[in-house]
Design a protein around this nucleic acid. Structure first.
Length: 509
RNA sequence: GGGCGCGUAGCUCAAUGGUAGAGCAGUGGCCUUUUAAGCCAUUGGUUGGGAGUUCGAGCCUCCCCGCGCUCACCA
């Protein structure tokens, strides 16, 4: 029962609520009114000041009380609404003893209030609502964490703000209510997705939706979540990528498609991994990975400009310039430069493994040549790619859906983009040869038998689709959460996901 | 999953193994242009949970729960 969980402080608030009801005052009225936001009201007043217009600016504001200073016959409050904060001024001469007492008796920090009156400027110069009437919109029984703002030399300094990550993420509603910069992150996130959609739409891509529940998962090296359809008696997987469905659409003649949505990977959680995360993938018929590379850096720079107004971002202490062209490093050359190992000279896993041991690296026993190369990328290339960098030309055996280079079948036309020392995107010239694709599936099947649980299962329907002919195409995937991390300067993915996954806590009675 | 660290009032934090405290929030007063309002008074704790060592545990030991960092895996 809710009431049993209340602290002494919360019971005090509950008592106020009951007293209001006794006086026929609604703690939760059905309707509210808001003619202006805080910002609109301030702007309207400042405009009238500039124009020397004496006509009163009459407004009705609504918001959450964040500060309340009662001083006998007058009172000041600050309320928050979606556009910011504004001060309210109450005076007994205008409101009457009874109404003034209402404010003092029933209103607490965190309550929603509706106040109407006219705008004016206080002696200290703050544009403020002179309240003629006010009303409770919603009584808050629990107190928000007490935070106070102090303005020191024009900068807002916040005192005793909510910082405990567990409370912030488990009770994100409290975090959002109390920390305005958190609200900003999610405005940035929404704007980022809009900008990406706008860019792709303008280039004749169409946005589609493909199944999240899939009988066969694929398209990425990852372990899936498994669920079950009761009536069909069928196990289903939550998708790990959109890739195989989107490419089926290329077969169907949708030449340019994209999807923005959730992927689910049953793997480790970290500052850059959440079990469910948002991905953007697009597929572009008659293009190859080099065209996709140009297009991708253009798209990301466009989004930055649109969302932030600049392509220069600050991330993890680094100033990063997202404007094209990005640095491009051939994978073989990059590894050679950073480790002295020439992967070209080590055509077998055994030979490359020996070279790694010689460098004091300890790869997992039985790793394939591709896995070893992946290890080198992760250890030596990725952390150093602070400024945007494309690494291209990957080994075939870790890229089962990418097309080989015509002149070297062991290398595929694939690139990954890195920013801030973090992998951001992955793309390739898509494999459209059904017979070659079948071979790749079979090889992966053997790797799966050998204990590599991240390999794809065979997807016969996908091979069937390719057999009808898929146009040559370039494909691209980007972690949207990570892009938002970059745009908002947050180092943890949990900061940019509204409700990041946390271990569930069992409530004791 | 491994390693390291953290968990004290609603929030932010103190407290040699020896009576659990402060600021803010709350409550009662005073206060007609304040703004981290101020002044006076005051409430609030199973120190994450459990066991142990000890005359005595917030502090030491063990187990459990949660969070953070990090390694592994991945994007």
């Amino acid at each position: 029962m809710l009431e049993k969980s209340f602290s002494e402080l919360e019971l005090t608030r509950l008592k106020k609520l009951r007293e209001m009801q006794d006086k026929n005052l609604q703690p939760y009225p059905t309707r509210a009114k808001q003619t202006h936001t805080s910002l609109e009201a301030i702007e309207a007043f400042e405009k009238s000041e500039l124009e020397n217009d004496d006509a009163p600016i009459k407004v009705t504001l609504a918001g959450r009380i964040r500060a309340l200073r009662t001083m006998g016959k007058i009172a000041f409050a600050h309320i928050d609404d979606r556009e910011g904060r504004i001060q309210l001024f109450f005076r007994v001469n205008d409101l009457g003893e009874e109404k003034m007492a209402e404010l003092d008796k029933f209103f607490d920090l965190g309550d929603f209030i509706q106040a109407s009156g006219h705008m004016f400027r206080t002696r200290r110069g703050e544009v403020t609502l002179y309240v003629h009437d006010f009303l409770m919109l919603s009584k808050a029984l629990r107190a928000l964490p007490a935070a106070k703002d102090e303005v020191v030399e024009g900068k807002v300094v916040r005192h005793a703000t909510l910082t405990d990550p567990e409370t912030r993420f488990r009770q994100r509603y409290v975090d959002l209510a109390v920390n305005p910069d958190v609200r900003e992150i999610f405005k940035t996130r929404a704007a980022t997705i809009r900008a990406l959609q706008y860019f792709l739409d303008e280039h004749d891509f169409i946005e589609v939706e493909t199944p999240i529940l899939q009988p066969i998962y694929g398209g990425a090296a990852a372990q899936p979540f498994i669920t079950h359809h009761n009536q069909l008696h069928q196990d289903l997987y939550l998708r790990v990528s959109f890739e195989l469905y989107l490419k089926r659409l290329l077969v169907g003649g949708l030449e340019r498609v994209y999807e923005i949505g959730r992927d689910f990977r049953n793997e480790g959680v970290s500052y850059k991994h959440n079990p469910e995360f948002t991905q953007l993938e697009f597929y572009w018929a008659f293009a190859d990975y080099l065209q996709v590379m140009d297009f991708a850096e253009e798209m990301i720079a466009f989004a930055a400009k649109k969302v932030l107004g600049t392509t220069t971002i600050l991330f993890d202490g680094h100033e990063i310039d997202l404007s094209p062209p990005w640095k491009r490093i051939d994978l073989r050359q990059g590894i050679l430069d950073s480790t002295g190992i020439d992967i070209e000279a080590h055509q077998t896993a055994d030979s490359l493994e020996a070279a790694l041991f010689a460098k004091n690296l300890k790869p997992k026993p039985g790793s394939t040549r591709g896995k070893l190369i992946d290890l080198l990328i992760g250890d030596f290339l990725e952390p150093n790619c602070i400024q945007p960098t494309f690494i291209y030309n990957y080994p075939r055996d870790i890229s089962p859906l990418a097309k080989s280079k015509p002149e070297d079948p062991s290398i595929v036309e694939r690139f990954e983009g890195f920013v801030g020392g973090m992998e951001l995107c992955n793309a390739f010239t898509e494999l459209n040869d059904p017979l070659d694709q079948e071979q790749r599936f079979l090889e992966m099947g053997r790797a799966y038998e050998d204990g590599d649980e991240e390999q794809h299962p065979m997807d016969d329907d996908y091979l069937n689709a390719l057999s009808y002919g898929m146009p040559p195409a370039g494909g691209f995937g980007i972690g949207v959460d990570r892009l938002v991390m970059l745009f908002s300067g947050r180092r943890s993915i949990r900061e940019v996901i509204l409700f990041p996954h946390l271990r569930s806590v069992t409530e004791e009675e």
